[in-house]
Design a protein around this nucleic acid. Sequence first.
DNA 1: TTAGGGTTAG
Length: 538
Amino acid sequence: MASSASAAALLPLPSPSCSSSEDSDDGKHLPSPPAPEANTPPTQQQKRRRLERDYNVAMKALALAGDLDEVVAVFAELKRTAADGGDGGAPPNVLCYNTLVNALAEAGREGEALKAFDEMLASGVAPNASSQNILIKMHARRSEFDLAWELIHKSGVEPDVGTYSTLIAGLCRAGKIVEAWGVLDWMLEKNCRPMVQTYTPIVQAYCRDGRIVEAKLLMAEMERLGCLPNVVTYNVLIRALCDDDKFDEVEQVLMESSTKDWKPSTVTYNIYMNGLCKKGKAKEALELLDVMLGEGLEPTAYTWSILLNCLCHSSRLLDAIYLLERSTELKWYAGVVAYNTVMSSLCEMGKWRGIMKLLTDMIKKGIEPNTRTFNILIRSLCVGGKSSLAKSLIHSQGFAANVVTYNILLHWFYYHGKLTEANRLISVMEEKNIAPDEVTYTIIIDGLCRERKFDAATACFLKSLTSGLSMDVLTVLLNRLVYADKIWEINRIFDGKDFVPDHHVFDLTIRTFCRAGYCHYRTFYKLNLILDAMLKRK
DNA sequence: TTAGGGTTAG
């Protein structure tokens, strides 16, 4: 199999070491051992500083690992320890507060972030520029630029290059390039010198808009000003060039890197490979793996994930399985998501035996399958004509069936006209307290209509309204009823007390009738009848 | 503190 050449070339790599293979350099920020002081014992203040530093390092590591609750707990412990420390119960310093507020804000827990910030102010801890920048980033992400401005003007903290850069990045993300330029002018007026982090978001905003020429002009301007674009800026440009199918230009940009004083990184190659994969150039993407290895760059979990997806989407399942099987040798700790990706592709091709084999392999490796894994297996068994096996699986121990599991089976039953089986399954869902979702209702309603049980389908829709109106569900029902000329049932939809149609519903109804040919003068009265019923509800 | 990869089921 020629296509495995690149992966095979990796086999002689040294066996995995115990160290982390992550591409970040976070490992370098581990707490340094306390510096041996001169013979004098540390003062109370020194002890305090060390305590805060250690707690701060721990909180940052926990935040990085996504364990936010633990960050909050560690901060609470710091407060308690500090209060008992015999130095008057001083609150944690601004750096610790910043770490807490940032972790909360990054995790989308904005309310708590603001509360922590207020608590800091109430404790008499003065915010610094970073505290302000953290909140500005939070506001900018929610497009609350008025709040960001207010903070800058009222906080009394002098904005720094980070403040302006954060604001520019937020504005650019919201597509407000003109306003971002305004902030840039403002900082120049204030004699604050922009950094590469200030310009790069603007380059990115141009790239996102497909304005590559302007992005390149700005990069040239950066060079002229002595603020050289770095690997991140070039990565942004390369991504845009890939999206635009300009792979020759990518090659040129890479070739010029040595003279332009920047060095492509693993991220650069990840972006390039992903770009090639998205355009169906799996072969070229795999060849890049050898190029990056040749440059001494180690592939990361991202790299493998990109290549795996690439192989799956280009129907090179054998190569994908090959990659999975050798993942440990490649120093890649493929997890359940990687297995699910490959299994999902096998499912599309109806290869349930292959899925079974991968399931065995992953369990042997100690990788625990999740509900998605089982759902993929169940669907593949249905597709492969083994529905009784699929059915028995949902009752097996160690498998938490969810609404998706039931939807897969319901779809299969309705599709094959097995209404009794479908009804039985709906009862099981009720017994097990698994709430139907939009997809469930769509499947049931479509299935019933196909069997010409329009009355039952309408009743099911009215029941679905208890959990809110879904336009998708209504579209399916309305379409079926209109084409079957079931005017009485349509009238029933708009008869219920809970359903007040809005303009989207009117729009959908009129469009559906017209598409089905009811806008002819002889049949138009039917649509009129329904519109009258709808207007009565309004 | 300030910028850059991808993400699996109906």
